[in-house]
Design a protein around this nucleic acid. Structure first.
Lengths: 348, 348
DNA sequence: TTGAAAGCGCTACCAC
DNA sequence: GTGGTAGCGCTTTCAA
């Protein structure tokens, strides 16, 4: 039992292939009567368009977009960000019957190779890119490949790619002011790898905000988003002579790790140490104390970026858009600084 | 500048399209000399096969497989399992230039609709299925669609699908014996939704093992894998008159939530309560105390299941395979039961 | 409004 | 070995 083709429908309806194609695609060229008849027959036959055939025919789309995730696989599994993003992107795509190709890579070169393959083999109509880096070669590369793309991030360094970006600096300022108001002077930012553009942005915003708030003991250290590195970094910071009283992490994973290290070292949170996480996820609400975090609507961002890509594929001019800044959700991990450093009474 | 086609190569080489096709696909029909010449020209021209064309031509593959993930989106984002699985599947697929289509759905009906669409529109060559349920309609559905598939789970209830399955009962027994040896009598299993086949399996294995170990106060309660539900369930259990002394969770997310609830209720882990998580992920090592967990090689499972699907697509007969059982990683969340229920000295 | 026919890029079959 | 050629299922142009 072969899959029915438009030819089968044409025969059954006693019309030509062309007429069927017009009817099925809702475009002018057939009368309403014939259209309805054709549609009925198509549904009777259980017809569905062959995607390869559609893609092959003059200028057809392949009906798929790609997303490459380039992060160390250790942190990937646990990083809530991506699945949420994927979920959002798909919500939007599924409405138009477009599929999502997901690829996980180890480094930027491999990522570029994937784009090259997708473009040359005509696997996707366009891609969504994330995690813009300093001197990122990808905007130029996809441009060179003629591969339509939108970027979640930027807009600096994105070339002429349409971006969906957030102004993190206002969130950073909010956090710094909040911590300063709680009495913290010695605030340290545990940021992501310095090659990420948003890390650089947040770092600058942090220094600026700290200066403005008069926090002399504020500085940033780089880590790599994984729990292990977050733990290591935290251990070093808490073992220093001048122990920070507040830590701001660039993602929730490192923050959770930091919380664990604080517990392990007998540093009470929040009385001796306040912790702020960047990405807010269920994780932040699960641990104790729950983590104060800056939340973004990742699913919403996924939806919006998918919508932008959709418009790019339609050939419409798409301008970069700024999305709302992350919101601070104060929870149990932040509190007023307790001046005297009484060592915690551990329960033994 | 058009993409080069085999016709361009044929002209440049002064041969026919057919010859080029043979040469490019490494099959007999051309002499070694011409083959080499054709290959060189193809690479000079930067030729790459058009996937839609390949798929459309007689019996061609579309070179993509699908994975549908059907879980509440709240837990999804944070559930390390899937990204690891995806990562493993892709490692294997990328070697053969096959892409992965990922779709997140809300319920089984939507999942079935996705398979139907993928099959009828020829979007994928086959699918990987996970999370087998009791009376799962999917094996029969994909069979009816003629959609090649392999299942991670089963083999009971999988019909004639090739499965990659684990015998969880031995792991369950190991955990129960371990907890019993630590002096625990009142052990409760916080399992996933009862519609999942592996939940049923583990539940039975748990009861059996508990009986054999003489644990009178052992029983199971159902939860739904999300952190929220895990927390709620734990709260209820710890508030009961007969408080359990050990909890075994069906995934790491609920276990972390349970750990948080214990802290919140002043129940010390592990002196008053031992906690075991099922899926071992970085998360288990991040929290304090770190979680004793049963770890599986999820990435490895992904690779293997992808390999099995590959063989199915080759038309080879593929038998179900049993993968190694999960291993127990004892960490800080489990310990000997401290008999007297001294309420914890909280650090205040 | 309708029908016929020409590709899209590739594979596979046929004769040569 | 090799070179023509007929599709795969669809879209689209061009006549009728």
């Amino acid at each position: 039992m072969r899959r029915p083709t438009i030819m089968d429908i044409a025969k059954a309806a006693g019309v030509s292939k062309g007429a069927v194609s017009y009817a099925l695609n809702g475009r002018p060229g057939v009368s309403e009567g014939t259209r309805k008849r054709i549609l009925d027959i198509a549904s009777d036959l259980g017809w569905a368009p062959s995607n390869p055939a559609r893609a092959l025919a003059a200028g057809g789309r392949v009906g798929a977009v790609g997303l490459v995730v380039d992060r160390p696989s250790r942190s990937l599994g646990i990083e809530p960000f991506f699945m949420q993003l994927v979920s959002g992107i798909e919500t939007e795509l599924s409405a138009t019957g477009v599929d999502l190709l997901l690829q996980v890579t180890e480094d930027t070169d491999t990522e570029l190779a994937v784009y090259r393959r997708w473009a040359s083999e005509r696997r996707v109509d366009g891609v969504v890119m994330v995690d813009l880096r300093v001197d990122d070669p990808r905007p130029a590369a996809v441009r060179g490949l003629g591969l339509p793309a939108v970027l979640l991030g930027g807009p600096g360094g994105a070339g002429d790619l349409p971006c969906l970006y957030t102004d993190d600096s206002s969130s950073v300022r909010e956090v710094v002011r909040y911590l300063a108001a709680l009495g913290h002077r010695h605030v340290v930012q545990v940021s992501g790898p310095e090659e990420f553009a948003h890390t650089v942005d947040r770092g600058e915003a942090f220094r600026e905000a700290a200066d403005r708030a008069g926090l002399a003991g504020a500085y940033s250290v780089h880590s790599d988003y994984t729990g292990e590195a977050g733990a290591r970094t935290t251990r070093r910071l808490l073992a220093a002579a001048e122990r920070p009283t507040a830590l701001v992490y660039d993602n929730d994973l490192m923050a959770v790790a930091g919380l664990g290290v604080a517990a392990e070292m007998g540093v009470d949170v929040p009385s001796q140490l306040s912790i702020v996480a960047w990405d807010d996820s269920a994780l932040c609400r699960l641990v104790r104390p729950s983590l104060t975090a800056i939340g973004r609507d990742v699913v919403g961002h996924g939806r919006q970026v998918a919508r932008m890509l959709g418009r790019v594929l339609e050939g419409e001019p798409v301008a970069s858009q700024e999305s709302s800044a992350g919101e601070l959700h104060p929870r149990g991990s932040t509190g007023p600084l307790v001046v005297s450093h009484v060592s915690a009474v551990t329960s033994e």
